[in-house]
Design a binder for these strands. Structure first.
Lengths: 235, 235, 235, 235
DNA sequence: TATGAATGAGCATTCATTCAT
DNA sequence: TATGAATGAATGCTCATTCAT
């Protein structure tokens, strides 16, 4: 890896920033270089190809997410579930986050064409569904959720939230019943899917009272991720 | 419109074919020209810019969908709903359809950057949700569905099915519990969301018994769509 | 020639109009077609190539000029000379004329590359210099001009006026001593070159009192010029 | 500016060479690239657009001229004036120079359409007329020229020489009285305009005895012109 | 005569990548 | 490590010209 660990971080932050600004389709190496005040050549010194760089960025992203999930593991299941659901939506003023997810959607749409990207998406999907499954499992053990099929339930929740976010992003600030697409769907999802599996008497905490530990996608300096550049080995 | 209506159709079919083959990001005017055995110049003769052409294609797509929805309006609500849900999924062998939806996802991911594309996506979203809402409304009137909030329900169903398809597409033929992502989610969606709103005693028809009228995305010759070339006016 | 004589005239007027609007370098067959409300194909029916069309236009232009010169031949030499000098300049509000001469300059700059254009420019040069030479000759015979070398004098006058106009056109409405480039030069030309060859006691008439018969380059309907299209013979 | 000063010079020389060979209207970036044995991409690396490159070339040209004028300032006015007049003409064998001025005329004809080109033409006009004005002023001070209006005289001389050259170029090697157009006009110009303002007893030196310091338009390596690539600032 | 449809050749520009330092 | 210089491949678009009717 880079002798200077901060260089790798600066580059990752640069990718993040450039993705937010230009989107994936319009993203050039020059954009990234500008965003981290480095030269194109240096990016190629650390990552042989543009693809290598983006794959490293995806790894970085997933790792960050995993770390955050880990950090919240000691909280009650209901709280964690609400956090997860809430995490998917944006407030209309979080344009940075929205721009980033737009870029991410573009990147995801390249999955079918790119094995390496796809493998990261799969890992990310695994992490997402496992996280939700684990939360539900935990809830069942805690006696707050009915004993449902956790795998199916996790798949449903993730698909729904993802679909809502995708639609909200691609359609713009479209209102559905006077609220955001994602929020409308999230609310309905809770009413129709989550509430029915709550054990009688159990209530979900209010969204506003739940601390969100999952990454808000800020270009925070991350504690040093080892993604050795240009080693070339890939799955 | 073109004097020869078949030219416009040939071009639309060419776009369809080329999107399936190359995806949206890699799609060139040459690809489209090749796909319909015409010259690049001719494409530019009919559609000033590449964007114009793709926007026209989206219009064509939505119009086709609307026509098919119209055609199935006389069937029972349960049947129509099952058809709609089934329509979202692919069999593993329908690679053509899958490839097309991959391209569509890429195109959708450009919505945030392109007003004209976005306006088509919004129209399409409207059509989708209105269709489902109308089906549920019809079901309530027929006495087969409980009187639920149709707008919310429609939003939930569409988001979930879209999310499942998006994930299935981007992640590849990933199995969830031994089935397709979309099918697993569709099944769970029916169990957890649709079944609970069925009036007691009513049962959904089996998927395999429902005739699917919605467009299978084949480049079928469509009965004449008016997309006057190069008029340039937009919204 | 065209069965309908007005068609040829409409096309010539179209070229004129289009040249004024787009200049020569940016002139497309479509521009000309639009300017005369005809189709590109029709232009090609009458004139095989774009070059043919422009060459015909130059012929048309020169012929018109000759006709106007002819019409003024019965006036006194001093009057004719002042008219000629005045004819070269524009008022700042004659933007149409200026735009046309801009296009003409562009066209002239193609002379070195195009034999057929060059031959028309040469003919036009001949007509110009001969006209001035004839005026001076006439003046000598009338006893108003000293017996100077008419060829040299004509060459000097034409070069100077042309140079002034070229500079005025290319440099924009640049002021020289509070007046137009062309007018400043024309005045100095009269002071330094014309006045000295006037016989003692003779005075030039005032510019404003001289009727300008030379063509103001308006797209006037011309009495029918025979420029048989597409005959292919040249020079 | 380029780290290697020779690169900028090579490109300028390439533009010069390509202009001479293809003219302005037919000039492509590929032509220029070929002419300096570089890649099109490199041209775009140094100059964002074709226009940028040509504007830089015009700047380069004017700067070179100014430098040469500067270098000849210590000579007598009559000598400098004769040099200036002689400088405008070509010998029939100087086809390179002629070709270059043809291209220049094409470029000038774009002035009305292009602010940046026009501003360079204006600067060049200023330099030309100021140079002649300064020479005449100097001559008046030296007591060899009568005290005439220097501005008017300079405008007249420049317009006449420019007009003669333009006509010679556009009309081809057309003879006027057995001599070049420019030479005929230059001779007459001296007879009718310059001689009359000479103080009695003063004579102009013979053209052949005057050393011409003004640039012969050869692609001579110029002592380092600063045209920082792609800075984008203009005027 | 007159037109709409269709084509091929050409061109400026972009961008990931490489090279020399 | 880090950079500026340089390149090849690719792409959307323009336009004169031709063809079928």
């Amino acid at each position: 890896m880079s002798a200077d660990p901060s260089t790798a971080e600066e580059i990752m932050a640069g990718v993040h920033h450039a993705l937010r600004e230009y989107g994936y389709a319009d993203l050039t190496m020059q954009d990234i270089a500008d965003a981290c005040s480095k030269s194109k050549s240096l990016l190629h010194y650390h990552y042989d190809t543009k693809e290598d760089l983006l794959v490293a960025f995806l790894d970085h992203l997933i790792t960050t997410f995993e770390r955050c999930v880990e950090a919240g593991r000691d909280r009650p299941a209901t709280e964690r579930l609400v956090e997860f659901i809430a995490w998917f939506g944006f407030d209309p003023d979080e344009t940075d986050r929205e721009h980033f997810h737009i870029a991410l959607l573009e990147l995801r749409s390249q999955g079918p064409f790119n094995d390496r990207i796809r493998s990261r998406l799969q890992r990310s999907d695994r992490v997402f569904r496992d996280t939700v499954a684990e939360i539900i499992e935990q809830g069942i053990e805690e006696g707050v959720f009915e004993p449902v099929d956790v795998t199916e339930t996790a798949a449903l929740l993730v698909a729904t939230l993802d679909g809502a976010r995708t639609r909200q992003i691609t359609l713009g600030e479209l209102d559905v019943d006077g609220d955001t697409y994602t929020r409308t769907v999230a609310r309905t999802l809770i009413d129709r899917v989550v509430d029915p599996i709550l054990v009688d008497g159990v209530e979900l905490p209010d969204v506003s009272s739940v601390e969100v530990l999952l990454p808000r996608d800020e270009p925070v300096a991350v504690p040093a991720v080892d993604d050795s550049p240009s080693t070339g080995d890939d799955r």
